[in-house]
């Protein structure tokens, strides 16, 4: 599953842009050459394919009619106002809703062409391939080492390989240099930004295919946020990343594609999330085709 030459070519300009230019305003952002970027590549390898997805909590639809596909080794961002269902959709991608009483996922979610919710699919197996990083850093109250080793251990990795694996995961999460001398210390003693990178390291250590990130920087200061964003662009080489964010600049900086969700009142007066527009990040932020998207990204909500 290494990226083909053509995919690398498409991906490259974004990498350069996002790491070099931190643009204050998402609208006036320059995202490489739009000619190259906007071309919808038919060779894009799909990881997820969502068809008419609707998610209900206790019989009430929280988000409805979501159609989108997510390609391998891209960063896909979900943006939109609170209550628009972006996190709900994200959590459906690794079956986190299985543990929420009353949550039902309708429609079809294909993962590499296979029904994610198929009768023979084990949710734990799904999550071993599709990892998740949460809004609030949630390291276990264990040592740094044990946090990273937890995933590999439950996946049956032998004790002998663990040291290398932990070092590797922490290095890839850009945390190794800061913690290499205190691996046996409690993870809770780390700063918020370090904890979040530890959680990313913990997710990486399982060698997943996809990493889902649910507002991973919302509890962090701008410096810690910048580090995590750099990390995402780095990790894109090996992993497919889907990120939910409230921060439009963040989406414009890191994402190849962006999905804009919004919440609207339906016929019965209930607020319901829906996917308004899904396109390349450049298109969403420079020439959105839906007035609702334009209203949101320019700050005129609704």
């Amino acid at each position: 599953m290494h990226p083909t030459a053509s995919q690398t070519d498409i991906v490259e300009p974004v990498t350069i842009d996002a790491s070099s230019g931190r643009v204050e305003n998402g609208i006036h952002l320059e995202v490489g050459d739009p000619e190259i970027f906007e071309r919808d590549d038919p060779t894009r390898e799909l990881v997820f394919d969502l068809e008419r997805v609707q998610i209900l909590y206790s019989g009430v639809a929280a988000v409805t009619d979501v159609n989108l596909d997510i390609a391998s080794r891209e960063v896909t961002a979900f943006i939109g106002p609170s209550g628009c269902g972006k996190t709900t959709v994200l959590r459906s991608l690794n079956r986190m809703h299985d543990t929420t009483p009353g949550a039902v996922v309708e429609g079809k979610i294909l993962y590499h062409g296979e029904d994610l919710y198929g009768p023979k699919v084990d949710a734990a197996e799904v999550r071993r391939r599709i990892g998740m990083v949460f809004q609030k850093p949630n390291p276990f109250p264990k040592s740094i080492y044990d946090n990273v080793a937890y995933g590999p251990k439950i996946n049956g990795r032998k004790r002998g390989d663990l040291d290398d694996l932990v070092e590797q995961a922490l290095t890839r999460a850009a945390l190794w240099d800061e913690v290499k001398d205190k691996l046996k210390r409690s993870a809770l003693a780390l700063s918020g930004g370090q904890q979040q990178r530890l959680c990313i390291a913990r997710a990486i250590a399982v060698e997943p295919d996809v990493i889902l990130m649910d507002e991973p920087c919302s509890a962090l200061d701008p410096i810690a946020t910048a580090r995590i964003e750099d990390l995402m662009i780095e990790l894109k080489r090996e992993f497919t990343i889907v990120i939910v964010t409230h921060n439009m600049q963040q989406a414009s900086r890191v994402a190849d594609r962006t999905a804009f969700f919004t919440a609207e009142l339906n016929e019965s007066g209930k607020r319901m999330g829906l996917l308004v527009e899904y396109d390349t990040t450049n298109k969403i932020f420079t020439q959105p085709s839906d007035p609702r998207t334009e209203g949101y990204i320019t700050g005129r909500f609704g």
């Binding site: 690794n94 543990t99 999550r127 990892g131 949460f134 390291p139 937890y150 439950i154």
Partner: peptide, 16 residues
């Protein structure tokens, strides 16, 4: 819940 979800998101079974 964040702790439990953290473990589940790593592919933990219930016992794990």
């Amino acid at each position: 819940i964040a702790q439990k979800e953290g473990a589940l998101a790593l592919g933990a079974t219930r016992w794990e």
